[in-house]
Amino acid sequence: MTGNSSNKLYKQIKKTTDKMFTMGLWIITALILVLIFGLLLYILSKGLPKISFDFLVGLPSEIDAGGGIGPFLLNSIYVLIISLLISIPIGIGSGVYLSEYAPSNRFTEFIRTCVESLASVPSIVIGLFGYVLFVDIFNIGLTIIGAGITLSLLNLPVITRVTEEAIQTVHNDLREASYAIGATKAQTIVKIVIPAALNGIISGVSLAACRAFGESALILLVGGTGTSGEMWDWNFMSQGGTLPVHLWYVQSEALVEDASDIAQKTSALLVLITLLLSLCIRLPLWIRDFRFHSRSKRN
């Protein structure tokens, strides 16, 4: 009887402790979510109602009030596209190689360690590398192309590591079933493994893209603080100042009277574009999953 009572008491204490721990995690999660949503709503409510079309496409002004952010917005999109065009194919290809083709030895583990180390390097260090490479060695100055290439170096380790982890979570039964019907290794990877790991890969790309869009220290060193001064200038040798850099400049050194309003509107626009960017990257996956579930219900 004493042993049974002790076991029951132990189980009751364990069950109570588990409930308390779970409740504590839910409370902490709820507090964090409330804090994040409150901060986002505060930033958006301060600047979003003031944004106009003229502000989005207008040229910035150094002295007069009422200037826009057109060239900086264009540069932000331009630099982001250049960086993703470089980092996505190389990063996904590297992740596939490390997961599916690389032999399991010390050299491969050393490469993984290097990738993880690069993913944790501060962006300003990569920016200094880009400054030395493009400004000192190649002597092309502060440019959009230099900022885009350097930004891709920031994205590469993240996309590579996330891709490798996502592919490794795909069950081997899928690979074996594909081999059983005569598919080659390349066909299995392209048609079976990558589609099965696409959710994780897209999450990595979304994380890298949103981080890159909000990057400022790296752009400041390699792209500069200014633009060409024209709205629709696609010359990648122009200065590559982006919205985060412009926000820093407006808050610290701008002489215009409405610097505070420009900063509020720019902050709200950065938050809004980052949210929309994440949604747009994930949208194809949501459409694919919706169609899959719809077909499953019909069958």
Rank of each mutant, 00 (worst) to 15 (best):
E230P: 01
S294G: 12
N105M: 07
S178D: 03
I81H: 03
Q239E: 15
S87L: 00
S104Q: 14
T169F: 09
I92W: 06
R211A: 05
P49I: 02
I92T: 11
P195G: 06
G148N: 03
G24L: 05
L269A: 07
A196W: 00
R288T: 11
Q264Y: 10
L25G: 11
T150D: 01
K15C: 11
D64A: 15
A119F: 05
L73S: 11
I273F: 09
L31C: 13
V250R: 06
P60T: 07
S203Y: 05
N75W: 00
I137N: 11
T169E: 15
T150Q: 00
S278F: 09
G58P: 08
V34I: 15
A263F: 10
K15W: 08
V79A: 02
S238V: 13
G182A: 08
G38W: 09
V121A: 04
C280V: 09
E257T: 12
S104C: 06
K14V: 08
V115W: 01
V79Q: 01
I13Y: 09
Q187P: 01
L40Q: 09
E164I: 04
I63K: 13
L85N: 09
R112M: 11
I82V: 12
Y179D: 06
L59M: 12
G24F: 07
W26M: 13
L80K: 00
D261E: 15
Q187Y: 01
A65E: 12
A177E: 04
K265G: 15
I126P: 02
K185G: 06
L156M: 07
S6V: 09
D136C: 03
R161K: 05
G224Q: 06
S278G: 14
M23A: 14
F37W: 12
N155A: 15
T242A: 00
L151C: 02
P284L: 08
S52T: 15
G93T: 14
I219A: 01
L255T: 08
A119M: 07
I88M: 04
A254K: 02
L272N: 01
G224D: 08
T188F: 05
S152R: 02
D136M: 08
E116W: 00
G70A: 09
K15E: 15
V57C: 05
W248E: 04
E230D: 11
L153G: 07
G241F: 02
A119N: 15
I82P: 03
I167K: 03
I51P: 11
N7F: 05
L128A: 14
N299Y: 07
G224C: 05
R106D: 06
G47S: 09
C114N: 13
P284E: 08
S260E: 15
R175M: 04
T169G: 04
F138Q: 10
E100Y: 03
